[in-house]
């Protein structure tokens, strides 16, 4: 089947999509956008988090056909050209990135949190990021990054 979808503001289409493919597969293997990550492909780790019509979803749990004529925004669509989004900048500065495989999903999840709640307290940050697994950092630096990003956005 053919899938037409707007990705990061651009109209895209993918041909010969097998009906069983996920949005994650289409992004990564057909549209050249491997930023969303394939860590579990069962909706447990959050590494493939993208916005679908402005709502964060696990791209691995969305069937390709479900995105027809809808809007997807991936981690690749967060920066403004060379300028990183404050969340991205904070992740690098705070040391929240080690292997980085969880990072794209966490960046999108944190980005979404700060849109909803510009100055979250720690329990709120933890709750918002609870669907994103990280195996390297123990999360302390990720919490630092979200606090830093909140401060940057507020500045």
């Amino acid at each position: 089947m053919r899938v037409n979808v707007t990705v990061n503001g651009e109209a895209r289409s993918a041909d010969d999509v097998w009906e069983g493919e996920s949005l994650l597969y289409v992004l990564r293997e057909r549209l050249g956008l491997p930023g969303a990550k394939n860590a579990c492909e069962q909706g447990e780790c959050g590494s493939c988090t993208v916005y679908l019509d402005d709502v964060p979803v696990c791209a691995c749990l969305v069937a390709a056909g479900q995105v027809q004529d809808r809007e997807v925004r991936t981690v690749e669509g967060l920066a403004d050209g060379e300028t990183l989004d404050p969340v991205q900048e904070a992740f690098v500065q705070a040391g929240a990135v080690q292997c980085g495989f969880c990072t794209p999903g966490l960046v999108v999840a944190a980005h979404d949190l700060l849109r909803r709640s510009p100055s979250p307290d720690d329990p709120e940050i933890r709750e918002a990021l609870a669907g994103n697994l990280c195996r390297c950092t123990g999360y302390e630096k990720i919490l630092d990054a979200v606090r830093l990003a909140a401060a940057k956005r507020g500045a």
Partner: peptide, 15 residues
Amino acid sequence: DGNLKVRGEFAYSSD
């Protein structure tokens, strides 16, 4: 490699 990783542009083996 931090900027590449936060942008989703770092080239992992599955990419």
